[in-house]
Deep mutational scan, measured.
Amino acid sequence: MDALKSAGRALIRSPSLAKQSWGGGGRHRKLPENWTDTRETLLEGMLFSLKYLGMTLVEQPKGEELSAAAIKRIVATAKASGKKLQKVTLKVSPRGIILTDNLTNQLIENVSIYRISYCTADKMHDKVFAYIAQSQHNQSLECHAFLCTKRKMAQAVTLTVAQAFKVAFEFWQVSKEEKEKRDKASQEGGDVLGARQDCTPPLKSLVATGNLLDLEETAKAPLSTVSANTTNMDEVPRPQALSGSSVVWELDDGLDEAFSRLAQSRTNPQVLDTGLTAQDMHYAQCLSPVDWDKPDSSGTEQDDLFSF
C-alpha cells in the first residue's frame, strides 16, 4: 500500500511530472533526481522514447528462454528487412502500455495491464526491452520488442512496467475491499429498513384510530445511509488515497477476473515476472533518469539497429 499512497501523494503535489519523457535525446524537461521519484509518476504514465523492432507469436506467457528466442527472431526479421526502425513513445501506467508513433502521434497499440504476463531486458541484446501480452483480438500470446538507447534504459522500462503492474494490483485490492464494505453496509441498511417496515402498523389501523404518522421519526431512520450505499452501487469504487486528485481509476471486468485468478494461483500475485536478476534490479533502481541518457562506457552510441 505504500507504493499506492506515495504515488497518489506525488501526483497530487505535481501532476505535471508524469508528462516528462525519457530517452528522447535531450528533449525532456528537468528530471527527478532518483528512481523513487520517477516511480511516483506512474499514475498518469511515464513516457519512454524507443524504437519498435516488431512482434512475434509465442506459445507460453512467460520465460527467459522463451523471450530470448522470440527477441532473436524479431531482431533477425528487422535486420533482414533493412528498413529504419519506427520511433515510438511507450506510455507506461497502472492501466497498461500505450504505444504511439512519434511522427504521426497515431495510436499503435493499447495493452491493458492485466494482459501483460512478462517483461524483460534481454541478456543477449542488452539494449532490447520486450514484453509478452495476450492479444486483445484473440487468445494468442505476442512478444513485442523495442530497441532502447542503452542497457540502462531497457532495464528502466522493464522495472517501470513491473512497478505499474504492482500498483494496478494494489488498486484492485483496495477497490475489492471498498466494494465488500459497501455491499455489507448496503445489506445491513436493508435489514434495518426491513425491520422498521415489519414493526410499522398498517396504514388502515392508523387511520381508524385517528393517529398521525410521525414524519420526524421517519426522517431519523437510516434511510439516507441505505440510499447512499445503493444509489451508486454500479459505480466502481476508487482508492481513497486518490481522493481529490485528477486521476480516475476504473476497474473493468477483465482486470477484476484476471487479478482474482492471480490472487488464487500465485504466492506473490502482485509481482510481474521479469528477466532481471536481483543485481540488475538493484543497479537500475539506483540510477537517476539522467543516467539513462548518458552514453555507455563501451563506446559511442549508434542510432541504428545494427549497432548491437
Results as ranks from 00 to 15, higher is better:
residue 2 D to I: 06
residue 3 A to D: 08
residue 3 A to C: 09
residue 3 A to G: 13
residue 5 K to D: 02
residue 5 K to Y: 03
residue 6 S to P: 10
residue 7 A to Q: 07
residue 8 G to F: 01
residue 11 L to Y: 13
residue 12 I to R: 15
residue 14 S to T: 11
residue 14 S to R: 15
residue 15 P to V: 00
residue 16 S to R: 14
residue 16 S to E: 10
residue 16 S to A: 08
residue 21 S to F: 02
residue 22 W to Y: 09
residue 23 G to F: 08
residue 24 G to S: 11
residue 24 G to P: 09
residue 24 G to H: 06
residue 27 R to E: 07
residue 27 R to V: 08
residue 28 H to K: 09
residue 28 H to Y: 15
residue 31 L to F: 14
residue 33 E to M: 07
residue 35 W to L: 04
residue 36 T to W: 08
residue 41 T to A: 08
residue 41 T to E: 13
residue 45 G to C: 01
residue 45 G to H: 12
residue 45 G to Q: 06
residue 47 L to E: 14
residue 48 F to E: 05
residue 50 L to G: 11
residue 50 L to N: 13
residue 54 G to N: 05
residue 55 M to Q: 10
residue 55 M to V: 14
residue 56 T to S: 12
residue 56 T to Q: 10
residue 58 V to A: 15
residue 58 V to Q: 12
residue 58 V to R: 07
residue 59 E to A: 15
residue 59 E to H: 10
residue 60 Q to Y: 12
residue 61 P to G: 07
residue 61 P to S: 07
residue 62 K to C: 07
residue 62 K to V: 09
residue 62 K to H: 04
residue 63 G to C: 15
residue 64 E to R: 12
residue 64 E to C: 12
residue 67 S to M: 14
residue 71 I to K: 05
residue 71 I to R: 07
residue 71 I to P: 04
residue 73 R to I: 09
residue 76 A to C: 09
residue 79 K to S: 07
residue 81 S to M: 14
residue 82 G to K: 04
residue 82 G to E: 14
residue 82 G to Y: 02
residue 88 V to G: 14
residue 88 V to R: 13
residue 90 L to A: 13
residue 90 L to T: 08
residue 92 V to L: 11
residue 92 V to C: 10
residue 94 P to A: 06
residue 95 R to L: 14
residue 97 I to K: 10
residue 97 I to L: 10
residue 99 L to R: 13
residue 99 L to S: 10
residue 100 T to M: 14
residue 101 D to V: 07
residue 101 D to Y: 14
residue 103 L to G: 14
residue 105 N to C: 01
residue 106 Q to K: 13
residue 106 Q to N: 06
residue 108 I to W: 08
residue 112 S to I: 09
residue 114 Y to D: 02
residue 116 I to N: 06
residue 117 S to N: 01
residue 117 S to Q: 03
residue 117 S to F: 15
residue 118 Y to I: 04
residue 119 C to K: 14
residue 123 K to S: 13
residue 126 D to K: 05
residue 127 K to F: 14
residue 127 K to V: 00
residue 128 V to W: 13
residue 128 V to R: 12
residue 128 V to N: 13
residue 128 V to I: 07
residue 129 F to S: 08
residue 131 Y to N: 07
residue 132 I to R: 13
residue 132 I to G: 07
residue 133 A to Q: 10
residue 134 Q to M: 12
residue 134 Q to Y: 12
residue 135 S to T: 05
residue 135 S to N: 11
residue 136 Q to N: 12
residue 138 N to G: 12
residue 138 N to F: 11
residue 139 Q to G: 14
residue 139 Q to E: 12
residue 140 S to P: 15
residue 140 S to W: 14
residue 143 C to N: 13
residue 143 C to L: 09
residue 147 L to W: 11
residue 148 C to G: 15
residue 148 C to A: 04
residue 154 A to I: 00
residue 155 Q to L: 14
residue 156 A to F: 11
residue 156 A to C: 06
residue 157 V to P: 01
residue 158 T to I: 10
residue 158 T to L: 02
residue 160 T to M: 09
residue 161 V to M: 02
residue 161 V to H: 00
residue 164 A to D: 00
residue 165 F to H: 05
residue 166 K to I: 06
residue 169 F to S: 01
residue 171 F to S: 03
residue 172 W to L: 01
residue 174 V to L: 00
residue 176 K to C: 04
residue 176 K to E: 04
residue 179 K to Y: 13
residue 180 E to T: 10
residue 180 E to K: 07
residue 180 E to R: 02
residue 181 K to Q: 02
residue 181 K to C: 12
residue 182 R to P: 11
residue 183 D to G: 11
residue 184 K to E: 05
residue 184 K to Q: 11
residue 185 A to E: 06
residue 187 Q to I: 12
residue 188 E to V: 03
residue 189 G to D: 04
residue 191 D to W: 11
residue 191 D to C: 13
residue 193 L to R: 12
residue 198 D to C: 02
residue 198 D to A: 05
residue 203 L to Y: 06
residue 204 K to T: 03
residue 207 V to E: 13
residue 209 T to L: 07
residue 211 N to M: 15
residue 211 N to P: 06
residue 217 E to N: 03
residue 217 E to Q: 06
residue 218 T to S: 07
residue 218 T to Q: 05
residue 219 A to D: 11
residue 219 A to W: 05
residue 220 K to S: 02
residue 220 K to G: 03
residue 220 K to F: 02
residue 222 P to S: 10
residue 223 L to M: 09
residue 226 V to G: 10
residue 228 A to F: 07
residue 229 N to L: 13
residue 229 N to F: 12
residue 229 N to Y: 09
residue 233 M to G: 12
residue 234 D to W: 09
residue 235 E to D: 07
residue 237 P to W: 04
residue 238 R to G: 07
residue 240 Q to C: 02
residue 240 Q to S: 09
residue 240 Q to A: 05
residue 242 L to G: 10
residue 243 S to N: 07
residue 243 S to L: 03
residue 247 V to P: 04
residue 248 V to H: 09
residue 248 V to K: 01
residue 252 D to W: 11
residue 253 D to I: 00
residue 255 L to V: 08
residue 257 E to F: 06
residue 258 A to I: 06
residue 261 R to S: 02
residue 261 R to W: 01
residue 263 A to K: 03
residue 266 R to E: 01
residue 268 N to C: 01
residue 269 P to Y: 01
residue 269 P to I: 01
residue 272 L to V: 07
residue 273 D to I: 05
residue 274 T to S: 05
residue 279 Q to L: 02
residue 279 Q to C: 00
residue 283 Y to C: 11
residue 285 Q to E: 15
residue 288 S to C: 01
residue 289 P to Y: 05
residue 292 W to Y: 03
residue 295 P to Q: 01
residue 299 G to M: 02
residue 300 T to H: 08
residue 300 T to V: 03
residue 301 E to K: 00
residue 302 Q to S: 09
residue 304 D to A: 06
residue 304 D to N: 14
residue 306 F to Y: 03
residue 306 F to N: 00
